[in-house]
Design a protein around this nucleic acid. Structure first.
Ligand SMILES: NC(=O)c1ccc[n+]([C@@H]2O[C@H](COP(=O)([O-])OP(=O)(O)OC[C@H]3O[C@@H](n4cnc5c(N)ncnc54)[C@H](O)[C@@H]3O)[C@@H](O)[C@H]2O)c1
Ligand SMILES: NC(=O)c1ccc[n+]([C@@H]2O[C@H](COP(=O)([O-])OP(=O)(O)OC[C@H]3O[C@@H](n4cnc5c(N)ncnc54)[C@H](O)[C@@H]3O)[C@@H](O)[C@H]2O)c1
Lengths: 267, 267
DNA sequence: CCATCTTTGTGCACGCGTTCACAAAGACAT
DNA sequence: ATGTCTTTGTGAACGCGTGCACAAAGATGG
């Protein structure tokens, strides 16, 4: 290590790999469970199993945080919980605003997993005047006119967007302008933000499409043995000529190698 | 994970990189928008901008599907929509069951993004007898006793888990035993499944923790100049002795009201 | 038919992330 | 103290993903 670009000569190992950061919450969850069962120590092997990862990976991940283990014994659960919590910034309280209190937003508002890790729902915001003042999950909804004020007063730096996709960018812009620097986006849109602002997206539709891809592959796999070369996939089979299929989508007549249904791309 | 079996030396270029697969839905969404505006063709540059990715990456991604572009012109929108849809398996209908119709499950049930891409909610399943028969988003909830029957009758291969974490593994096992081979898990637990079954997880809590990490780093960055040694980083500063801090600190001070904690420790 | 201009498709290099494998560190027993 | 046994921490190799940069392909205009 360290051979990379050591922009930060000061304190060493300033950079924890992104992949590691993404796994820390996983470890933390497993450790918390152990802690509640009063388990004093765990080996990398046990913890890795609980977190569903490779033990070598886990050890390397922890090595970025420091040497918190004891050889021959393992890791002290309580201590590790604390160290990871601190590293993730969970020892402090993070006020969060949720914008767009519809079906999803309401579910999120009532989600216990928020509070359980130091995330406090500071406010629920919606543009619908009819919603204003109405309590959702015990928290009164506030009107989006007050968005800037709310964010400033509470010092909110994390925002959750659960509005329709069409207005997500606008909402995002307002959040950022008001001082939010981390956004969790549930709307199916690509958000553009200035440097220094982090955006993470949760897109159900994309997840399903990825699953569908693998599902299709599995299905094709079984029959491929006797179906011949172009059973499940070879694009060339369907490729007539690139600039050909101009016009209607449904006009794709005989294309699918295995009796595909014409693609109807809906709204 | 996912691509466990590479027993396929047969047909060439069988493997589309996982990272590419994950981006295809993104491209598809952007292309669909263009299609609705009747835009006939797009360059890789334009499309990349719309999808929020690098244009070289996009071209390389498409190259895995075949040569569907025309040099000097770009890509035919309609044709590309069809090709990507086919590659992702969206030209066929995917019945999906949602298990656990609580706050989140209900929101998912009513989500338009499902149907818009060939995913059909085949059934809503919940263990609560009081829910049985009650329509949610126009679909009557069925009791989990009938889970196996429902899955078999509809030929469901994709399941969504939105139950409490504590029962997620059991639900998962039943789904898999009944024939489901793709699972989208919203419960904060690590699911273990046999080979051949794909699991994707959506974990709000993890996303927030990742944001918090970066948020903390941003905050620490500004003050780091004068903060001295243990600003927000050097672990040793807080390190008393590895096996020391037993029970102290109230660590995260959580008292999970949500039962967020797994409890399921895969032995 | 040829020249020019646009945009694709990809070879290549690089960096990140994963995994193996093992020396060293420490616990524990004798 | 010394030896044995367990488990960490990490060096090193490898594979995947990314982005640059450019030749080739094809459109377009003369
Ligand atoms: N429901 C789901 O399960 C689900 C899943 C994945 C993604 N999504 C996405 O999440 C978003 C919300 O979904 P939903 O089902 O809750 O929709 P919804 O229509 O029920 O809720 C949207 C809410 O946003 C509010 N809103 C509209 N414009 C606003 C603005 N400018 N400022 C503040 N609030 C505004 C509306 O008043 C409404 O209450 C959508 O983009 C959807 O695609 C939903
Ligand atoms: N609400 C959110 O925004 C949110 C966000 C992220 C993750 N989650 C997770 O999603 C899950 C559901 O959250 P929720 O807020 O909807 O909880 P909820 O308590 O409102 O709903 C859970 C539902 O699952 C049903 N259920 C319980 N055991 C079952 C079983 N064995 N088989 C079938 N159904 C069963 C219950 O009857 C209930 O209707 C939880 O694991 C939660 O941690 C929720």
């Amino acid at each position: 290590m360290a051979t990379g670009r050591t922009h930060r000569p000061a304190t060493r190992s300033r950079g924890i790999p992104e992949a590691t950061v993404a796994r820390l919450p996983l470890y933390l969850r497993a450790l918390t469970a152990l802690s509640e069962r009063s388990v004093p120590t765990v080996s990398s092997e046990e913890l890795a199993a609980a977190a569903g990862v490779n033990s070598a990976k886990l050890r390397k991940d922890f090595s970025y945080l420091g040497s918190y283990g004891t050889r021959g014994v393992g890791y002290d659960v309580e201590y590790l919980v604390y160290q990871i919590s601190r590293e993730l910034g969970l020892t402090q309280d993070w006020p969060v605003v949720i914008v767009g209190i519809g079906n999803l937003g309401a579910a999120l508002a009532g989600y216990g997993g928020f509070a359980s890790r130091g995330f406090r729902v500071a406010a629920l915001i919606d543009a619908d005047p009819a919603m204003t003042g109405k309590p959702v999950a015990g928290i009164p909804v506030q009107h989006s006119d007050d968005l800037e004020k709310i964010i400033n007063e509470d010092g909110v730096s994390i925002g959750v967007i659960a509005t329709p996709a069409g207005v997500a960018q606008q909402v995002c812009d307002r959040l950022v302008a008001a001082g939010v620097t981390s956004i969790l986006n549930f709307a199916p849109t690509v958000l553009s933000v200035p440097d220094g602002v982090d955006v993470r997206k949760v897109d159900l539709s994309i997840e399903l499409q990825i699953l569908a891809f693998h599902e299709q592959r599995k299905a094709g796999e079984e029959t491929s043995a006797e179906e011949g070369p172009d059973a499940g996939a070879e694009p060339e089979a369907a490729a007539v000529a690139p600039p050909a299929p101009r016009g209607a989508t449904g006009s794709t007549g005989r294309k699918g190698p295995d009796g595909d249904v014409p693609a109807v791309m809906p709204a």
